[in-house]
């Protein structure tokens, strides 16, 4: 456990350093800081993966069964996805959102009880890691889309109210934020879809039924429909800007409830306790 908790703390620290670098890059508009931040995050994501691997072999299964593990996995997916998208699109401004969020997720993970939940044998399947990977990468993409949406609304507000100081100077242009919002949406939607489909297949192998209107399933479907509507609105009706930003923020609230609220507040297959008890 010693190596693992050391790796875990180190990863958290690296995410903090990257957060500072990205924020400095945004405030001072120095590209060099965000370039360094990218390398730091790459190191962090590798450390985190190692940490994940060690835990995998210690626990003897995919270690995403407790809140502690799940939050950390979310952080890892977030950074991984951010780095991948950053390679392809102009996304480095989102580092100032992704890195601090990953850091906070790691802190939240440390604060939640570090327990090892042995997965019920019924649930043991190769579909489990596939399901959670798609689901969390989708979550990560939507988190980034949410971040861009919030930044858009703030910047839009500054422009409309004609206050040209402070955060106005720091935030990027509306065009960039809207594009990032759309890019993340268009990446997140297929990931989430695959997450739901793989979950259904997994449910079938475990319980012989693809869909059983478990609260998680219901909420996930609702969230999926919201994102589908947003994507549709963007592609066909020409939704963009403020409207799309607000929509992506609301949809993310639903997603957050699907992710955390359902597990923590409602009963069903997906509560962390249920993984073991069922």
């Amino acid at each position: 456990m010693g190596t693992m908790s050391l790796l875990f703390s180190l990863t958290t620290l690296i995410y903090l350093v990257a957060s500072i670098l990205y924020i400095v890059a945004m405030v001072t508009k120095k590209q060099s800081a965000s370039r360094i931040g990218r390398w730091v995050l790459l190191v962090g994501v590798i450390f985190h993966a190692t940490c994940f691997g060690v835990r995998h072999s210690t626990v003897g299964g995919t270690p995403v069964t407790s809140l502690h593990e799940s939050l950390a996995f979310f952080a890892w997916c977030l950074i991984l996805l951010f780095l991948l998208l950053d390679l392809r699109f102009r996304l480095s401004v989102m580092g100032a959102f992704a890195a601090p969020l990953a850091f906070l997720l790691m802190v939240a993970s440390v604060l939640s009880p570090n327990v090892v939940v042995q997965l019920n044998p019924v649930l043991q399947s190769w579909l489990f890691p596939v399901h959670i990977t798609f689901a969390f990468l989708g979550n990560a993409a939507f988190a980034l889309s949410f971040g861009a949406g919030v930044m858009y609304l703030i910047q839009n507000r500054m422009l409309k109210s004609k206050s040209f100081t402070g955060i106005y100077q720091v935030l990027p242009s509306l065009d960039v934020l809207d594009k990032v919002n759309y890019t993340c949406l268009s990446v997140g939607f297929p990931l989430m879809t695959l997450g739901i489909i793989s979950g259904a297949f997994w449910a079938n192998t475990a319980w012989g039924t693809y869909w059983s209107w478990d609260p998680k399933e219901t909420w996930a479907l609702l969230t999926w429909i919201l994102y589908a509507a947003l994507l549709h609105g963007r592609l066909t009706i020409g939704w963009r800007g403020r409207k799309a930003a607000i929509f992506s923020i609301v949809a993310f609230m639903f997603l957050l409830f699907t992710y955390l609220g359902v597990n923590l507040l409602l009963d069903g297959y997906h509560t962390f306790e249920a993984f073991a008890l069922l």
Partner: peptide
């Protein structure tokens, strides 16, 4: 960043446009 922002009205318009359209 002493020289980074526009201090003439006509250039301020360009700068403002960049915060909307980026390029």
């Amino acid at each position: 960043a002493i020289a980074s922002n526009a201090v003439s009205v006509s250039f301020a318009a360009v700068e403002l446009a960049r915060k909307i359209f980026d390029s």
